[in-house]
Write a protein that binds this DNA or RNA. Structure first.
Lengths: 235, 235
DNA sequence: CGCAGAAGCTGATATTTATCAGTTTTTAAA
DNA sequence: TTTAAAAACTGATAAATATCAGCTTCTGCG
């Protein structure tokens, strides 16, 4: 699964989307027996760093950012989870408090599953456990990749990468393959790329001038993915 | 487990050291039945990013850096593993190529365990699997923490943090609790903190002038851990 | 023991990126 | 529809950090 044959997009995505497929019908039924659905509006916080987990979350519809806030304000986005993905399971498994916060970046529908039910299925289904182990191992790849990029790439490269990654997440929203439209604030882009908001704006203007993208307020339309990948300078 | 009551050192260490304790004697015996020990000199590469894993490694003696190399030269260190820890298991579990490289940062003795034996035990021992799941989940905490620090802290703060983390890894080397001596190159410090070598040298000089540490070539003696923690500015 | 290469170190300079102090535009609530 | 707050944007400046070029000191090998 590689983007346009050159950008290793699998290095940027967790793989919790397909985990639930390992469950039998009755196992799945038991997992979701006590679930409760909740709507979250854009910006709503789902859980906060340092709090104690009571269960895990399944994103039915929408997108969620996982982030850490450092010295007051300024959040660093660790990962953007899409519909179908699980979040909040790390803390349950490691028996720690949440290491990061999660908030909706668009209106979302999310199921809460009590941790007891999650743990119960885990003990019941070896296939589920193996699949989870695989997913968690892959996450190491994604996070190590993120560390390397943030430490070693320039601001324009990091922004380009953020846009490529987001484009993939917004792909299925639209019908066509080309000219995918992202709907994301400058602040969230800054949080993903680890640069100041003002510089995100300036860089977007440059990209626009180069014909790589068009933007109208929050909407960013990727016009030339090939040139964007080139901009990212990714091997 | 928190350093001097204020620095959250557990946020900086994987927990694979105690995983093998979950195995019964016969399980352990089977795991290591086909192991082969090998000595690695300081600087020797254990595995390289992009290659295909054939098994996992158990560090019997020594220390190992896990790192990613970006655009020729300049390596970013993701993690420093100590004796007792397992490395190379992510790629086996996720059935991918190694996402990072590993090299000895001091002379080390390392056992290689064929992946078949590892997988076999994994299927045999639910306790082992659960423990591994927990360890991998904790790793998310460590890596998310690293991302946030690299993205949001200043160079002096990052260097201070690198020194604090290393101090903990070198603790058991010496007898006393105080004035722990690190044995690490400026280049590796630069790789850990994500800053240029030259600046590592300049910052170390500052720390020295402030009485925080003393250094004699590669040997760095932490004199005032409290002031170092303050320097790191860590909540 | 001598020597070559690596690592450590220094100062000067360039570059990148953040910060600041606004203005304009958009958005959503009254 | 008005309007207040939030987000987007701009230019100027400051700060942080990297880069470069050269020098010195170690270190391990022959």
């Amino acid at each position: 699964m590689s983007l346009s044959g050159i950008f290793p997009i699998d290095r940027w995505n967790f793989t919790t989307q397909s985990i639930l497929n390992t469950l039998s019908e009755e196992e799945y039924a038991e997992l979701v027996a006590n679930q409760s659905d909740q709507k979250y509006l854009k910006g709503d916080v789902i859980f906060r760093e340092g709090s104690v987990p009571a269960g895990i979350f399944l994103i039915r519809r929408g997108k969620v950012k996982k982030y850490k806030v450092d010295n007051l304000a300024k959040e660093q986005i660790i990962y953007v989870a899409n519909h179908g993905e699980l979040i909040g399971y790390h803390a349950v498994l490691s028996e720690e408090r949440y290491p990061d916060s999660a908030a909706a970046i668009e209106d979302s529908l999310i199921s809460f599953i009590p941790k007891e039910d999650f743990i119960s299925i885990l003990h019941r289904s070896p296939a589920f456990t193996q699949r989870l182990l695989k997913a968690l191992s892959h996450e190491f790849t994604v996070l190590a990749n993120t560390i390397s990029v943030i430490a070693q790439r320039t601001a324009p490269e990091r922004l380009a990468i953020a846009l490529i990654v987001l484009r993939e997440k917004y792909k299925d929203e639209e019908s066509g393959e080309k000219d995918i439209v992202l709907n994301v604030s400058r602040m969230d882009l800054a949080g993903m790329a680890g640069i100041a908001q003002e510089n995100v704006i300036r860089l977007l203007k440059e990209f626009k001038a180069e014909g790589i993208l068009e933007s109208d307020g929050r909407k960013i339309r990727i016009m030339d993915i090939k040139r964007l990948i080139k901009k990212s300078n990714y091997r």
